[in-house]
C-alpha cells in the first residue's frame, strides 16, 4: 500500500484523515476477530463475525476501497496471529471476507430514484453475512468436499446469517453514526 505521506499527489492513496482512523478500525477488527476464535461459538459452526462491524463502519465512513483494505489486512494479520496463514481456514476467511465486502459495497452504491439508500447498514450486514457464508461454502465445495451435498447447508447458513447479520448491523448502525460525528469534530475539541 503506498504511503500517502510520501506521495501526496497520488490519487490512489488514502488521505491522512482516512488512513489514521482506518488503521485504528483495522487494529480493532484484528483483535475482535482473534478474540472470537478463542471464545466459544454460540452454536457449533456458527460465529458472530463481529469484525464485520468494523468493516461496516469503514465502508460507511470511508467507502468501499477502505473497507476492502481493512478486510484484506484483517485476514492477513489475523491469520498470522492465529498461525493459520495460507491454511484452509485462511482461504475460507479470505474468500468469505472479500466476497462479503464486495457485495456490501455494491449494495451501498444503490440509490432509489429519490436518491435515498434503500438499505441501511443493517441490510448491508445481513447481505454481507449471507454472502460470507455462501463464498465459504463455495470454496469448501471447490477445494475440500467435492460433492454438491454441502449446499444442503445453505438454509442453515441463511438462518445463521440472518441472526448474526441483524445483530452486527444493529451494533454497526449507531456506532458508525457516532464515529462520523466524532471524526467531523476538529482535533482537540
Amino acid at each position: 500500500m503506498p504511503s500517502p505521506v510520501e506521495s501526496p499527489g497520488d490519487a490512489s492513496a488514502l488521505s491522512r484523515e482516512t488512513l489514521v482512523p482506518l488503521a485504528a478500525l483495522t487494529a480493532i477488527a484484528v483483535v475482535v476477530h482473534s478474540a472470537e476464535q478463542i471464545l466459544p461459538a454460540p452454536l457449533p459452526g456458527v460465529r458472530l463475525g463481529l469484525a464485520n462491524i468494523l468493516t461496516l463502519c469503514a465502508l460507511d465512513l470511508f467507502g468501499l476501497r477502505a473497507a476492502l483494505i481493512l478486510t484484506v489486512n484483517r485476514v492477513l494479520l489475523g491469520s498470522l496471529l492465529s498461525g493459520t496463514f495460507l491454511g484452509p481456514a485462511f482461504l475460507l476467511s479470505g474468500a468469505g471476507g472479500i466476497a462479503s465486502v464486495l457485495a456490501m459495497g455494491l449494495l451501498y452504491q444503490i440509490r432509489t430514484p429519490g436518491g435515498r439508500r434503500p438499505f441501511s447498514l443493517v441490510g448491508l450486514s445481513l447481505t454481507g453475512a449471507f454472502v460470507h457464508n455462501l463464498a465459504q461454502l463455495s470454496v469448501v465445495h471447490l477445494l475440500f468436499v467435492r460433492h454438491p451435498e454441502v449446499f444442503f447447508l445453505l438454509p442453515l447458513m441463511a438462518g445463521a446469517a440472518a441472526a448474526t447479520g441483524l445483530f452486527n448491523g444493529l451494533v454497526a448502525l449507531p456506532l458508525a453514526a457516532h464515529l462520523r460525528l466524532l471524526l467531523a469534530k476538529p482535533v482537540g475539541s
Binding site: 438499505f119 445481513l126 445453505l154 442453515l156 441463511a158
Partner: peptide, 29 residues
Amino acid sequence: MSIRQTLKLTTGGDLVLLLAMVALTVGGL
C-alpha cells in the same frame, strides 16, 4: 443512541432482506 433511534435508521429494504433470509431458511429446511 437508543435502540429506538437505531431502529428508526433502518429501512424497509432491510426488513425485506431479513424476511427473505428467514423465508429461505424455513423453506429450505
